[in-house]
Design a protein around this nucleic acid. Structure first.
Lengths: 396, 396
DNA sequence: TCTACTTTTTCCACTCAGAGGACAAAGAAG
DNA sequence: CTTCTTTGTCCTCTGAGTGGAAAAAGTAGA
């Protein structure tokens, strides 16, 4: 039996909830230092907070030189589910209400199998996490899918790499199955929210989060809020033209960034190079595994293989050129690089940095850090938990 | 002697002021229909509004079937000054508090002469407008400059085409000279605000406003608010690489959009074409005027000159490619094209549209209008008036 | 142990924004 | 001249929130 939780009654309670989420257990007095409310008003709101089921008392705090204060904290039994559906694998994690990961599962999986098959898998993984004692049930879930989403309804729209998902009511269906509130968003937005909450972007209001996986996307954060665009497709930078008259892309155009550099493109290029005998390292790996992925290229590169390094550098240059344009346009305070190819590490990062710092104007790049994401594969699931907690911790 | 005006005391008054600005004179009853306040509260706020000096009574309204209501309106004596400093000319206009243009002057002028010379000119133009009886004095001024601005302080920063302006305290200096509040912003942002207030973008929350003049810039509006970026240089798209290893640009790089298409680049290309004997039309104009500008190219094009048309088409293609990338990234609800080259009209627009619709994904372009600005050279000055009115009509 | 000082919490009186009803004022329609 | 509608004013009531006083629960030194 699932406990029922209620949304906060007003903006004050919402603010207190986020303070408890981001700062952990806290005394009433300390909360008072952080919000701008009179003692009396604070007492009233704090007293009412447990009625929502989201907050519980937590004993006495240490003395600060006088009477000891009462601690409160978010209900430690609350559980959020973060789901990050990638093109070729799915991550599912359980967090507590403070968005700390308690358990994390990853499984290979092809999104093209369609929503029904994928969610069967996701639900099985969620059940497994529950069976291992991490949760009795879920109080909310945040789902990331690799394509544009009509955000208010939580429905994917015209996702190029996910045929069969167009119009599928993800939010409603999963809410039914899980018996809890669900929010759905593009996976890059979730990654951005994850890095914002617990990663490198904690203190930046305007930043970009470029995710290079099977495809390429970009989370856009404006004033601390994710920007999704008019139809929910903002950040879809994989099909920006990077090479005039370049390679044909699945979208029908030529020279798209994604056709020249992405997990898929990199793997294809590596196979080609191996077959042409350009790299003994890659050729032997191809023979051993029967195929190559970005991971193989990363390994070959760190073994010093020149061809692998060239592939990474060239891809980084292409990506860097596109990012340079976005930096000129958007003037962010930070650029985060993440996704599956993060394993390519500093070779990739150096190539991207070179292009951006060379091509964008000094005013935009002067104080612009370009860094790898801190959270790796957990960014997405933490972002999912963050998404649903933002929803549940806001007034109804 | 200038009257003193005060800022509204609270958000309700601010809301009423913008309603009066955007909807003109209005009866108390009609205002009541538009705001969500009880009659008593509304009466209190409306009664206090004249204390600010911004609002005056305006007789009785027509009956709506019962007792006639009292009209109020923004003080008809209020005057805002809108100043749009371009690279090669300056526009100065006077508006009333409803942001209607009462008088408008334009003069050629080179920004490179520096802020002192330019503002001497601007003040002379403002004095001329005042002398012609349009204003006794100014209650506020909004200034647009062709480069990035540290917005809160109103100080240009590192403007590439305006040497000598870096760090000049425009806001403070002009506030002194004019004796009224002043706000300063990038000229493309002003154009965006102008088109938002009185032009094609009245109903759109997220849009881009591309201004092609001597240089190229882009105003970015997110959720109805201008987005300025971390250092105020957002929208600086003139130096995005449009042509790999293309022409050298003043910024030190090669292939910048601005180096390939802008008022300046177009004029240069036209001269070159004329000298090479590619176009009799352009050659004769070159001989007559001793030089060519975008206006000549526009005239030649509408006379059917093939070379001129080619120049415009190629420029449009370049610009369209860059815009296509921005559309994929930003997913706007509208793209406005404006600036000095608007005279190139539909040839340019068609080229841009072709590229954008071809290169961006259907989800982003499906319902995306790409249109010419409606206000032409008045967009900037109206935007300036809008900028200062937003400031004056918000609680202090 | 006792005393003086701090910090936290509760209690209470007070202010203020705002809502909404009653009613007066002003006009329309017959 | 009467009846109905709309508009504006007045007055009371409510609920959010503030800030002071005092109680509760500590610490630290004599």
């Amino acid at each position: 039996m699932r406990r029922m939780t209620a949304r906060p009654a007003n903006a004050h309670q919402a603010r207190l909830l986020t303070l408890l989420r981001d700062g952990g257990p806290n005394s009433r007095a300390q909360l008072g230092d952080q919000v701008d409310l009179s003692r009396s008003k604070l007492a009233v709101e704090v007293d009412r907070l447990p009625e929502t089921g989201l907050v519980v008392a937590d004993g006495l705090a240490a003395s600060r030189g006088g009477r000891r204060s009462h601690n409160i904290r978010l209900n430690p039994e609350l559980r959020f589910l973060g789901v990050d559906i990638g093109a070729t694998s799915v991550d599912v994690a359980v967090t507590n209400a403070e968005l700390e990961t308690l358990g994390h599962l990853n499984q290979p999986m092809d999104v093209r199998e369609g929503p029904v098959a994928v969610f069967e898998q996701v639900l099985a993984m969620a059940a497994k996490l529950r069976a291992s004692g991490l949760a009795e049930g879920f109080d909310g879930a945040g789902i990331g899918v690799p394509g544009p989403v009509r955000f208010p309804e939580g429905i994917p729209v015209a996702p190029p790499i996910m045929p069969g998902w167009d119009g599928f009511p993800v939010r409603e269906a999963l809410s039914q199955e899980l018996g809890c509130p669900v929010m759905v968003d593009n996976d890059v937005n979730l990654m951005a929210m994850g890095e914002q909450h617990a990663g490198v972007a904690r203190t930046v209001a305007d930043f970009l989060c470029v995710k290079i996986g099977t495809g390429i996307g970009c989370g856009i954060v404006v004033g601390g809020e994710v920007y999704r665009g008019t139809t929910g497709s903002a950040g879809d930078i994989g099909h920006i033209q990077a090479v005039p008259d370049g390679r044909p892309c699945a979208c029908g155009n030529r020279g798209c960034l994604e056709a020249h550099f992405s997990g898929a493109a990199l793997a294809r290029d590596a196979v080609e190079a191996a077959q042409q005998g350009l790299s003994a390292e890659l050729a032997s790996r191809l023979e051993t595994n029967g195929g190559l992925t970005a991971v193989d290229v990363a390994a070959a590169a760190s073994a010093g293989d020149a061809t692998a390094l060239d592939l990474i550098r060239e891809g980084g240059n292409r990506t860097g050129q596109v990012i340079a344009g976005l930096v000129s346009f958007f003037n962010p305070g930070l650029v985060v690089i993440g996704g599956g190819v993060t394993g390519l590490g500093h070779t990739l990062l150096a190539a991207i940095r070179t292009q951006v710092y060379r091509q964008s104007l000094p005013l935009a790049t002067g104080n612009l850090p370009i860094v790898l994401g801190e959270l790796g594969p957990t960014a997405g699931v933490i972002g999912g938990a963050r998404l649903i907690s933002d929803h549940l911790f806001s007034p109804a």
